[in-house]
Design a binder for these strands. Structure first.
Length: 158
DNA sequence: GCCAACGTTGGC
DNA sequence: GCCAACGTTGGC
């Protein structure tokens, strides 16, 4: 199947692109939304490329690139009663929550902000830009990915 | 900190 | 199975 493209949101106070760069690879634990889980479980394949998005920060926006390095497997934090992501309804033999591993690819020279993205022709249909969109794992088209990557990797003076 | 937009829960 | 209440997300 053709490679797919995604956008993954994170609050940088919890986990940032700098954290990913330092670690190299991370398990995308803690997703507790069915639609986001379905994207990880059913959609994400090894080598798929990811726009890494910082939310609840100033400014929110895409800050770098990552890649799927392991396809979906059960999220162990759901089984851990001491974890803030604990879900007693998820059992090891019938895991409700799945995650993927993501590896670091690149950090943009500057945040490509949500405000800037809204002004870019060709991105108007991105789920991210839709009013009320909260999904933390979203699909991105190949064209949208190419446009965002190009703008993000370009060094800009501000 | 506010609050709109969603998703989930639970009473009925 | 409906839907009100509640909790969360996340931009502003």
């Amino acid at each position: 199947m053709a490679k797919r493209y995604w956008l993954m949101k994170t609050e940088p106070d919890a986990f940032s692109i700098a954290d990913l760069e330092r670690l190299g690879v991370t398990a995308w634990e803690g997703v507790r939304n069915y639609q986001a889980r379905n994207h990880m479980r059913d959609g994400m394949k090894l080598g798929d490329e990811v726009l890494f998005y910082h939310s609840s920060t100033k400014p929110p926006g895409v800050v770098g690139l990552a890649r799927v390095s392991r396809e979906s497997y059960p999220d162990p934090t759901a089984f851990d009663s001491k974890s803030k992501y604990f879900d007693p309804k998820s059992k090891p033999d019938a895991a409700r929550w799945m995650m993927v591993d993501v590896e670091y690819v690149a950090t943009f020279p500057a945040t490509l902000s949500l405000e800037e993205l809204r002004a870019v022709p060709g991105l108007q249909d991105m789920p991210l830009l839709r009013k009320g969109q909260r999904l933390s794992v979203q699909p991105v088209s190949a064209d949208e990915y190419r446009i965002v990557k190009k703008l993000g990797m370009r060094a800009r003076s501000r």
